[in-house]
Each structure stands twice: as C-alpha cells, then as structure tokens.
Simulated assay, not measured.
Amino acid sequence: MVLTTGYGSVAVPAKRVTLTNPDSGRSVEASVGDSIEVRLTGYRDGVRVYTWDVPQPSDSAVLRRTAGGTTPSGGASAVFHVQRSGVARINVVRKCHPDPGHICPLIIVPWKATIGVK
C-alpha cells in the first residue's frame, strides 16, 4: 500500500499478524496487502487426540488463503493475503479422535477470528 501526500509517496510495509489457539473470538484490523497467519496446535488428552481442520475464510474476495495444511500431531496452519476492504472471518473446527475402544464427547469446538479490512 502506498500513502500519498502533497510532497510525494511513502511506502507503508505490509504487516503480518499471527493468530494462535487463544486468539479464538479475536477481532483484528488489517490493511490491503497484509498477511494473516493462523497456527493452531492439536493435543492429546489421555485416550483422545484433538485435531484441527485447515482454516478457511468466510469471504475469499477479502481474504485469499495462500497456504494451509495440517500436521500429524493434529495442528493446522494457514496464511491469508488481505485482498480488499471488507469484513471476513477465519473459521476452523477442532474435532476429537479417540483411541480404539474409547469414545469422544459429542462436541465440536469452533475457532474463529474476525478480520476487518480498511
């Protein structure tokens, strides 16, 4: 992004915002050209593994995912490029996977962050 004044142009570097497990429900202000990175960690709780899906944008015209994947330990990550003004959410779900002979609670845990772009 370039800001102009009566005396010339000043380049404003794009910023990168990183969001992790505790950032669920967070609202972030961003500018066109910025990057939003989501890094979520899965975990084992006794006989269950809790894993994340790959994070998705609610509006790919505002946030375009440029990278994303999951890890064998249940983590997930994604990088989003901020493309235009608007509001978009990043959504992902954590799921339980039990060891053989065990069960999981019937709970799906959503994670989301709201990105407001000026």
Score class of each variant (00 low, 15 high):
residue 36 I to T: 06
residue 56 Q to I: 10
residue 2 V to R: 08
residue 17 V to Y: 09
residue 8 G to E: 06
residue 74 G to M: 15
residue 15 K to H: 07
residue 35 S to Q: 14
residue 55 P to V: 13
residue 78 A to N: 06
residue 47 V to E: 15
residue 82 V to R: 05
residue 113 A to H: 01
residue 86 G to T: 05
residue 73 S to V: 05
residue 96 C to F: 10
residue 56 Q to T: 12
residue 65 R to C: 04
residue 108 I to Q: 14
residue 4 T to I: 15
residue 23 D to F: 07
residue 25 G to N: 03
residue 64 R to L: 15
residue 80 F to L: 14
residue 8 G to N: 02
residue 11 A to T: 05
residue 104 C to L: 10
residue 100 P to H: 07
residue 35 S to G: 00
residue 103 I to P: 00
residue 41 T to N: 02
residue 77 S to C: 00
residue 93 V to M: 14
residue 84 R to T: 14
residue 107 I to R: 04
residue 86 G to Q: 07
residue 52 W to Y: 15
residue 21 N to C: 07
residue 71 T to Q: 11
residue 115 I to A: 04
residue 105 P to A: 13
residue 68 G to T: 12
residue 50 Y to Q: 04
residue 49 V to Y: 03
residue 14 A to H: 05
residue 36 I to D: 07
residue 114 T to D: 13
residue 64 R to H: 12
residue 90 I to M: 12
residue 26 R to E: 09
residue 84 R to C: 05
residue 92 V to F: 04
residue 7 Y to Q: 11
residue 118 K to H: 11
residue 75 G to R: 05
residue 30 A to M: 11
residue 91 N to E: 12
residue 28 V to M: 06
residue 53 D to Q: 13
residue 103 I to F: 10
residue 36 I to A: 08
residue 25 G to F: 06
residue 76 A to E: 12
residue 31 S to L: 08
residue 18 T to A: 14
residue 88 A to H: 01
residue 45 D to C: 02
residue 13 P to H: 01
residue 29 E to C: 01
residue 9 S to H: 08
residue 34 D to K: 05
residue 17 V to G: 01
residue 59 D to W: 06
residue 23 D to E: 15
residue 75 G to D: 11
residue 118 K to M: 08
residue 54 V to T: 07
residue 83 Q to W: 00
residue 52 W to L: 04
residue 85 S to T: 04
residue 68 G to I: 15
residue 43 Y to S: 10
residue 64 R to M: 15
residue 69 G to M: 07
residue 117 V to C: 14
residue 86 G to K: 03
residue 16 R to A: 14
residue 62 V to F: 11
residue 115 I to T: 02
residue 83 Q to F: 00
residue 87 V to Q: 12
residue 90 I to G: 10
residue 95 K to M: 09
residue 93 V to K: 08
residue 82 V to G: 09
residue 81 H to N: 13
residue 38 V to D: 09
residue 41 T to V: 08
